[in-house]
Design a protein around this nucleic acid. Sequence first.
DNA 1: CGTACAATTGAAGGACATCAAAAGCGGTGG
DNA 2: CCACCGCTTTTGATGTCCTTCAATTGTACG
Lengths: 240, 240
Amino acid sequence: MPIRRQLDAIANLGGADRVLDAGATLYRQGERCNAFFFVISGWITLTTLLENGNCQILDFVIPGALLGFPFLSGLPRRHSAMCVTPVRVVCYPEVRLDDAIVKNAELAIVLCRQAALDEWRAHDHLTNVGLRSARERIAHLLLELSIRLAGRPPRKGESFRIPLTQSHVGQAVGLTSVHVSRTLRSLREQGILRFVKQDLHILDPVALGRAAGFPDLAPDVATTLNDTRLMNFDALPKAC
Amino acid sequence: MPIRRQLDAIANLGGADRVLDAGATLYRQGERCNAFFFVISGWITLTTLLENGNCQILDFVIPGALLGFPFLSGLPRRHSAMCVTPVRVVCYPEVRLDDAIVKNAELAIVLCRQAALDEWRAHDHLTNVGLRSARERIAHLLLELSIRLAGRPPRKGESFRIPLTQSHVGQAVGLTSVHVSRTLRSLREQGILRFVKQDLHILDPVALGRAAGFPDLAPDVATTLNDTRLMNFDALPKAC
DNA sequence: CGTACAATTGAAGGACATCAAAAGCGGTGG
DNA sequence: CCACCGCTTTTGATGTCCTTCAATTGTACG
């Protein structure tokens, strides 16, 4: 079981459970912080803040992920990790990367994989924002989140709890919340999806895929995600 | 010396030198390829191609970097690596991640660091494209490249060889080459920089920094880059 | 029941794209 | 040496996608 292996790998690092309210931060941009975290429940955003007050959401972190490992230890964080919902994590404070890796090759493998996955999502996100239209960006994001939550492409009529505001969506894909609202309306009117009160209903997965700009790529992406242990934590045995 | 350490770490993997023409690819999107590379000279772009023919440049790879390590081995590549100029690399074919890491903790550390740096640049790139104007994006990119090449912030009057077309710049920051041209003209007319024939002249570093949206961040960024061994290969001892 | 925040909708403006054409520049061959 | 080619850069005119500003309507919560 993938996530079991992650936990085994870090078992001897002595983590402690921690509960945070919505709006709290795990670490802040500019801060030196050598802790890292395993997310048990709740949603977290990784955000960078600009001087002008604008804010970019780099990624959404969902349960089952490792978060914030200080590969570049001692250096200030480049982004903040903020809780969107109440969050439960295992916190591993003051880890020394070099020691931990030398002592534990299994951990090194898990970390490399996690880093590669994170980078892959960052790249995906970048192409999304860089060369797609508003409609495509939003469809793409919602489809990606569905796939990450389900571990496979969504089926017709399925629905997911996505605790984000339209403003979050906008900050993630580089649009104003106003335009997100308009675009969601258009998608709703075309019978592709409904996103009300943080519940996303997938009415037409195929049309959604087409709107998102992956034509038949979705199954492949799902395989990737599944293969590399970014699954929904709730779907796991209670062993952890 | 940082890059020496990288090379030491991978010394026993048996790499072979390889020379490629401009336009050649190291690996292609969709391809299964377990090789990775150390760049000796030349510039490389990491690109994703969309079905509609559009193309996003994810990152520019310059000499001294490790490239394409198959963390998610066996899975198809998510992007292509294309030579912008003639390129010399050391090629390490068919590496098995798990074995290599278990046998060589030093390598694992280097890889984790490289992965973290790549992810950091991807995030930086993402905020650049996500919430800055055309002017800011271009200024930011050129400043970033200068810093990576010099290992520190550029000085007044300094110039750098950047073998990119305006079309490359556009594909990197999500703009058309037409608009890149116009924006560069504006920056030139304001005495901030000149970018002619692949030679970038920094006329006013402070104004460039302000145009890019980091106000005083530049020194910090430079420190980060320097600290984490993304330096210009040419500045290294010839030992490699 | 009032306050705060999220979502919605309209009107107007701007930043960037698209289309099209011309000019500069290096390379190649007659 | 000049003509020709492909590629990059430049510039203009026109259009559009998205933003900005502003006001209204939910909806949750103390």
